[in-house]
């Protein structure tokens, strides 16, 4: 039972990270139907910006988090404007390859500038370095922080998407871009805004992973990115609450497989779940099936 609770706690921390990344995938896919392969590298850049803030500027976690989110937001918008916008009317495969190109550019560009070495975040001080022991279960202060930051960001995101004008524009554009444009919505601004939001969340995930796992490298984004995408598909791609549920589900499954079974196969199991979900319910947990008009 204690081990079970421990796995749930670890799973929630990991799941928070996946959920934050998955939100970016799902929002971008929802609005321009592109699997933004570069998204996982925005997350990596977020981790490096956080690293720079904390190591060289000696800033605290929260200021670093904000800077990192801002930097990723700008990066996300620039990527969209430079690489994706010219391809908005091209085939899906061409857009996808561009996304992969951007992903490679960020990974290997980063590798060129900061070298491939693994870097470690500075150790945390004060309350954040504490652990609490409740029964046989260890609860780190960092884990509480990760989940808390994630929940706050998700609530903010929900408010933006549901209550604001731009959020309404996002939802309208994802339903039907042409109709939204005819209704006077500035589609370009809306798409940029979507990238900004998603990238900021990825930046937050990057720095949280940095302080939690303590090591970062230029290729750190690939696998979490893939799993976060699985999370988005699991929840129903394009559906924001789906990405959150999917993120936590994948996080918990992964920690349980590592904890109870073989950690070597944990990634294989995540992908097996993906394939099963796709076959059983391709539209995901909360997604709606669409029908082609004949």
């Amino acid at each position: 039972m204690e081990q079970f609770m421990q796995q749930v706690i670890n799973g929630l921390s990991l799941g928070s990270i996946y959920a934050l990344i998955a939100l970016g995938y799902t929002m971008v896919y929802g609005i321009i139907k592109l699997i933004n392969f570069a998204h996982c590298d925005v997350y990596m850049i977020g981790a490096y910006v956080g690293y720079a803030c904390m190591t060289f500027l000696h800033l605290g976690l929260i200021p670093s988090l904000c800077i990192s989110m801002l930097a990723c937001m700008i990066l996300g918008v620039v990527i969209e404007k430079v690489a994706y916008k010219p391809l908005r009317n091209a085939t899906r495969i061409a857009a996808l390859i561009t996304a992969i190109g951007v992903s490679y550019l960020l990974e290997y560009g980063m590798m060129y500038f900061v070298k491939a070495d693994v870097r470690t975040y500075p150790p945390l001080e004060g309350i954040l370095s504490q652990s609490f022991h409740i029964g046989g279960v260890t609860l780190k202060a960092m884990q509480i922080l990760i989940v808390a930051v994630t929940v706050v960001l998700m609530i903010l995101l929900q408010i933006i998407v549901k209550k604001t004008r731009i959020g309404k524009a996002m939802r309208a554009t994802s339903q039907d871009q042409d109709a939204a444009e005819l209704m006077g919505i500035n589609v370009n601004t809306t798409i940029s805004f979507t990238f900004a939001l998603g990238s900021a969340l990825a930046g937050a995930a990057g720095i949280l992973v940095g302080v939690y796992y303590n090591s970062i490298d230029p290729l750190m984004g690939f696998l979490p990115g893939l799993k976060a995408f699985v999370a988005a598909v699991f929840g129903g791609i394009g559906v924001i609450p789906g990405a959150m549920i999917g993120g936590y589900f994948i996080g918990i499954v992964e920690t349980f497989v590592s904890g109870y079974g073989s950690s070597m196969y944990k990634d294989a199991i995540v992908f097996a779940i993906l394939i099963i979900v796709l076959i059983v319910k391709p539209s995901g947990l909360l997604g709606k099936a669409t029908r082609e008009k004949v």
Binding site: R92, A268, I275
Partner: peptide
């Protein structure tokens, strides 16, 4: 047989997942 019922990006992701599973199996 099971995955080709999927369309577009969904098939792409399923085949990507399949290739990753194969790689992980060979790794272990």
């Amino acid at each position: 047989l099971p995955t080709l019922r999927l369309k577009g990006d969904y098939l792409a992701i399923a085949t990507l997942g399949m290739a990753e599973i194969i790689r992980i199996v060979f790794q272990n």
